[in-house]
Design a protein around this nucleic acid. Structure first.
Lengths: 296, 296
DNA sequence: TAGACTGTCAGTTATAAGCTGACAATTGTC
DNA sequence: GACAATTGTCAGCTTATAACTGACAGTCTA
């Protein structure tokens, strides 16, 4: 590769053009005028063309110098902005974050994550309220609310953290009875329903253009996913849960997915923040860290 | 001022993120990996936050590092473009420039300027054809045509070099007879007309909302402005010429402007280049130098 | 377990940045 | 016209930084 350009010389050149004299540039840069003079000469040698017309008492850029100045000035501004932006954003976050989330999600994911977050940012206090009822994040003055569902992507300030699939799962022994060629086999099969699906009585499996509407027999209901998970692990029934909630169980073989070639609905995990409010440094950091680490 | 940022470290950082490893960055930069490692550490110290998460076998930017990378990459690209652009444009211009201009203008301005241009760029040959008839710069394959007149500013590829005013001038002794309260005094006064105004019989003087239409007595005509200038300097008559053509004579007192508070038409000197044709390096340089030096 | 690969550290060398003092040229003031 | 002030450049020197090599620790793969 060609020899690398010395970018610091851009600063000398731009300062000189801005000041109108080498002496003024030296003052602005806090170095001696001899150094500025020498650096400019080196820059012109690198480039192979004069950038400045020098007279005693004043100087001015050549045509080439004017062209170079515009590019150099812009590059310097951007480079210095890079420093400033990063230093600004890493001002230490502090204060209280008020967060709400559904109970299950909060217990399984938000709480452990908040603990890790708080270690990294010890001056931030995380205040969590877990509830399955919807909360008004403006009225109740939360900084952040997690939502699980099928929000439109155009919702204001609802940032999608990830997508998930609803999947049908049961114990391995139950799978031996439920699994077959087609999900229709699940019609009338015993089913434990999450309160998140209150009043829902049918589930639609899809494969390409093929659709099967399943009406299972609701034999139990619960609001706590951990309880539902424990229930289907031990019992003879199936349930429908977001795939991320049972990832470990699937991996360990404690649960099996039914009809993996067929799909139910997709949904998303959303982080919602109040509209029209400047995000605190702490909230900004929390969201960024959540992007990559919430679900680990 | 705050200590100046070392912009060369941006190059180390960006190379590292691009390569995915410090070893790869060192190879790309042509320096040892120990240097890259140290420079990155110094950069992180300057900024005050980690930019890279290091593991054996690979590294990746932190969230802060990703933000910084975008800005730094853009700044570097622009800075390197500054060098490349300037080096490209100062590749030695060479070849033939075919130029046409009106006779008077060509003799007085273009020829002397072309001589100076050719000294600066000895590998360029300037081929001038001076004519008062319009030439087709596409059909006749000119690179550049100078035009004097009142072109619309929206003309394609007609670059206005400068504006001028038409002014009425005569010798000082003639001025003693012609100058009065009002340009109407010039009605019927002897006038030498330039061929550029062929068939024109009246001139309109304006001052604010006031207009006076003057019909002078055409006593002579000539195509060469130098001859017209000599004629009015020696004789008892006046003429109308672009102000730039008689600047020196006005300064030396050989000619006087009549009714300086009144205005005639304004016009422009245009450099016209063929549309849809990439300008050669030589033409580019010629136009730039003409911008500042043609009329000196 | 050994080899390959990566990143870091320490000590050293080479290079560059920056200093001071002096000088020449130009401009402004008296 | 003389002199002072200002500017840019040069040379020699000092200081700081960039870059080197060699060694080492940790991880991954065969």
């Amino acid at each position: 590769m060609t020899r690398r350009n010395n970018l610091n010389r851009l600063a000398h050149f731009v300062a000189t053009v801005d000041a109108g004299t080498i002496t003024g540039a030296a003052t602005a840069l806090g170095i001696s005028k001899a150094v500025v003079s020498k650096q400019l000469q080196l820059l012109e040698a690198d480039i192979g063309t004069p950038l400045l017309l020098r007279n005693t008492r004043h100087l001015q850029p050549t045509e080439a110098g004017r062209v170079f100045y515009e590019d150099a000035k812009s590059a310097l501004t951007q480079a210095n902005n890079a420093y400033e932006r990063i230093q600004e954003r890493d001002r230490k976050p502090r204060g209280v974050l008020r967060i709400t989330a559904p109970v299950d999600f909060g217990v399984s994911y938000v709480a452990p994550f908040a603990a890790r977050f708080q270690e990294v940012y010890p001056d931030v206090t995380v205040n969590m309220r877990l509830a399955d009822s919807l909360v008004d994040i403006i009225e109740d003055r939360y900084d952040l609310a997690f939502r699980i569902g099928q929000l439109s992507d155009s919702s204001n300030r609802a940032r999608k953290l990830m997508s998930f699939e609803e999947i049908a799962v049961c114990s391995p022994t139950s799978a031996a009875r439920f699994q077959s060629e087609c999900p229709s086999n699940l019609d009338g099969a015993p089913f434990i329903r999450s309160h998140a699906f209150a009043s829902k009585t049918e589930w639609i499996f899809e494969k390409g253009d093929d659709k099967r509407v399943i009406v299972p027999k609701i034999v139990s209901e619960a609001n706590i996913t951990l309880a539902i998970r424990a229930y289907v692990t031990a019992g003879f029934c199936f349930t429908v849960l977001p795939d991320f909630l049972v990832r470990d169980e699937l991996k360990d073989g404690k649960l099996k997915r039914l009809f993996p070639d067929w799909s139910l609905r997709n949904g998303g995990i959303y982080a919602m923040t109040p509209p029209n409010r400047v995000r605190s440094n702490a909230l900004q950091r929390f969201l960024e860290m959540a992007d990559s680490e919430l679900l680990t």
